[in-house]
Design a protein around this nucleic acid. Structure first.
Lengths: 235, 235
DNA sequence: GAGTGGTCTAGACCACCTG
DNA sequence: AGGTGGTCTAGACCACTCG
């Protein structure tokens, strides 16, 4: 489906900021100007700018305009985006599949309460490490209820992206998520993957993604090494 | 100033959810219905519902309606709210001033880069511990550039709230913030305040609040004990 | 088919900032 | 005074869900 007008304008402005056509401190064209030049209503322009502001790309100031903000140095892992989007243009993102998808029973004492239907279906699990500039910064265990996911384990992920695979092959769209965050120390397995010493502190995130399919959720257990790159909500 | 229509509707619906007039799984009245009964345009209703959805109170489903979500068990510390709002109605929140506000020079190697004007002004610093149900969960060091804050150190905070004090006494409104999050281990001082063992992992947050006063920022250094209460974006 | 939320329009008035 | 973003209105068409 054709993206909405506000999404197209959002994507356009975001890429222009990332590419450097607009620099820190610059003013974006005014809402009326964008409305005229793109031939869309001002309310629609405002929606695009609202998203940019929520993600920290611009700051809106009444009476002045929309000011382009500095690009952040931290990884916007807490925001609801795919990994490569989250990392931003200034770093090189890479993902490695540590354990390919397999069908299995749910782990004991799973971190979210499962419905009887989910319990019975069992799960598909896989494990990936994410790198930023060659440093492993994120270890992610993904769990999908094993319902109507034919061939998931036999075909590789599309472009290495779980979201894209779910969308294109199974028409499942990720719409939102909830997460719980805590600090823990690395055990030996995790320390090995991150190439750090055991007992190094890590951020652990439990995450439940909501989809367009009623009662179908996707789960992730994430470990973040924040020694070199901190994490944040933006970008 | 009178709150906007969408803010009033947002606050009304939120309190009705918190109080239990709407329960998990319930549908809110439809947008058209809210528009009619409150005599405001549907776009204005939508803005109120948008905020509720962003904070996780409801989930909007096309063709069905706005579904009330379960209340979370974690503390929405990562969201941009005052502490008591963040904790939610189901816990008892308490704050203790550990060190009353004093004027001082900025710490060496401050966690954000300061402007020359901020450097020169020096800062006002104070230290608070936040309790949830009698457990210390958050240690917060607050730093304000010492500019035009007459009597800040000699009068107590209004209702114990920094935001309220800045707003009413100095007409400074907090409008947004940025934060960086990492995992660390407790040193002896922090462990003492949290009544935990040194080397317990903690979440550390650097935060910079943006205000309605140009180039005036408020800074916080926060430690969270996540052993008992995890943290999240919502509520 | 009736009702829902998603998107969009073309206006309007306001408070705020700057020259 | 002129331009900016903040709020608001009263419509409209669409895709979706459900009985």
């Amino acid at each position: 489906m054709e993206p909405a007008h506000y999404q197209k304008l959002y994507a356009l402005l975001k890429s222009q900021i990332q590419v450097g056509n607009f620099k820190e401190g610059d003013l974006l064209p005014s809402e009326n100007e964008l409305s005229t030049t793109h031939k869309i209503a001002r309310m629609t322009v405002r929606r695009a700018l609202m998203e940019l502001a929520n993600e920290g790309y611009i700051k809106k100031v009444k009476g002045k305009g929309s000011i382009v903000c500095a690009t952040r140095k931290s990884l916007g892992i807490l925001s609801f985006k795919g990994f490569s989007e989250v990392v931003g243009a200034e770093y090189a993102a890479k993902t490695m599949m540590l354990r390919a998808p397999i069908e299995m029973a749910w782990p004991e004492r799973f971190f979210y309460k499962l419905s009887p239907e989910e319990e019975e279906a069992g799960c598909i699990m896989f494990e990936r490490v994410r790198f930023v500039d060659e440093d492993p910064v994120m270890l992610e265990y993904s769990y999908l209820p094993n319902q109507n996911l034919d061939d998931f384990c036999t075909k590789p992920l599309l472009d290495g992206s779980l979201f894209k695979t779910l969308n294109i092959r199974y028409h499942i769209d990720i719409e939102s998520f909830e997460q719980d965050i805590r600090a823990i120390v690395a055990d030996e397995i995790i320390a090995f993957h991150f190439k750090i010493k055991p007992l190094t502190p890590l951020v652990q995130i439990y995450r439940r993604y909501h989809t367009n399919v009623p009662d179908y959720f996707v789960y992730s257990l994430i470990y973040c090494n924040t020694e070199k790159y901190t994490i944040s909500n933006h970008q």
